[in-house]
Design a protein around this nucleic acid. Structure first.
Lengths: 253, 253
DNA sequence: GCCGACTTTCCGTCAGGCGGAAACCCGGGT
DNA sequence: ACCCGGGTTTCCGCCTGACGGAAAGTCGGC
């Protein structure tokens, strides 16, 4: 019988099939052949072929000179209308620029989706520490600086759920004990700033602050990532906090 | 040919219907009620209702607290995998940052799609001239700086087609005579730089240079937009050209 | 020239998409 | 209180056009 994922294949709606085609792409698979795509989507090739044809015509996919299929520009255009993307970016860009100019380090903006954070914008200097986050990527909330902020200010249910599932470990310093995490979160709420010290990679440290929407609830988190050794988070905190506040202010209008 | 418009409603494939739902959103309509959406997509409400349901479940749309429908984060995630988005952005970010720091003006990156340019990235300072372009927006090629660059280096057929259709006018200085445009393009090719002087709005001027892919063909255009009066394009040109060259270089590896 | 992997076309079957209609919900006007 | 208009959601019978197996076509490697 089939391998794991291709099971319920007879019983999917037409839309689900089309969306499965899109889901076949991810950060490791940005270019696919038709049959690889069909395989990953759990669809017969002939079906995939038709759906891909529709998507190509629409601009949701494009075929490169090498014949491989990739995500298309038109899809990106409509996706760029997502409220927590464009709107936030526009509002955040100037302050992020300021912060970058002041620090010359990676400046990142992220929002929460479910139990994960999604990075929506990033300004990366050429001299900044290389980090493994990238725009469009998901991360668990428990490790990163932005994650701590977004978790600390998330609704109760979300916090409970996040704390009840086992915490993913990245480094020896990653916090995996729920009790310890809980007290860190309280600390974040009190100080309005989060520090993730080597919790995601051993050479990086990030300082994050909440960005608030018009009605005061936290809608995003801003962070700066710096080299871990020798860095002094205390000096960064005020800059990050004020930049985040500036973004909040421009969201308010 | 045409990207989907709302047309003959009976004769559409299932996928086309789903994609029509997405196309109902644009820069002026980022949040829609179900019935408005149905109207714009040219679909019966009940059909739209089902499709929207599928998209909500998948994360392609989300329903705000106000009950309105908006483009969802998950759609944006997969769209972020588009090659001419993420890849370019990553490569371009540092140089764009440098250019911004040197000028403190709007720095923009655009690619060509069909007969139009699409802006894929922009760094906007708080002191920069307000411009009407925005990330994710389309523009005709004939007016903007980036458009001139992308048109000048586009394949013959594209140039012919662009020159044969009537050119859109934005200001009194917009070039609408094909002969004149043709000579401007030759000039752009010769000098490796394009200047759009008040051709899109009367207060702005942009200077653009080509970004080349690994095999030497022009894949994008980089531009700086400045206040039109008093600006001296000649001083900007070298900076833009070198930044664009730096991006080309980092694409080559 | 043969073989394997991928792409594209064809077509008979029948699941499930489609959309009209009716029920439901909600706020605002009188 | 009542109705009315606009939106949303549910229901269900008809019939279309999606589905996918199979075969033909294409390309490249050995």
């Amino acid at each position: 019988m089939g391998k794991g994922r291709a099971d319920a294949r007879g019983s999917r709606t037409a839309s689900a099939r089309l969306l499965a085609v899109l889901d076949a792409f991810d950060a490791e698979h940005r270019a696919l052949t038709l049959s690889a795509l069909a395989r990953r989507a759990g669809l017969p090739v002939s079906t995939a072929h038709r759906l891909v044809g529709d998507l190509l015509a629409w601009g949701g996919l494009e075929r490169g000179d090498d014949g491989l299929l990739r995500v298309g520009l038109h899809l990106w255009e409509v996706a760029a209308l997502a409220p927590r993307t464009i709107g936030l970016r526009e509002a955040a860009a100037p302050s992020m620029g300021d912060l970058y100019e002041a620090t010359h380090e990676n400046v990142q903006l992220a929002v929460r989706d479910g139990l994960e954070v999604v990075f929506v914008e990033r300004i990366a200097g050429r001299h900044a520490v290389p980090v493994l986050t990238r725009v469009g990527l998901r991360f668990p909330m428990s490790a990163t600086g932005v994650g701590l902020v977004l978790l600390a200010f998330a609704p109760r249910e979300v916090q409970e759920e996040a704390l009840s599932s086992p915490l993913e470990r990245f480094t020896e310093r990653t916090v995996v004990d729920p009790r310890q995490l809980r007290s860190m979160l309280a600390d974040v709420r009190r100080r309005g700033i989060a520090v993730s010290d080597r919790q995601v990679t051993m050479d990086a440290l990030s300082v994050a602050a909440p960005v608030r929407g018009p009605d005061g609830d936290v809608v995003a988190a801003l962070s700066v990532v710096v080299q871990a050794d020798g860095a002094e988070p205390r000096t960064l905190a005020p800059a990050v906090r004020t930049a985040a506040a500036a973004i909040s202010r421009s969201l308010a209008r």
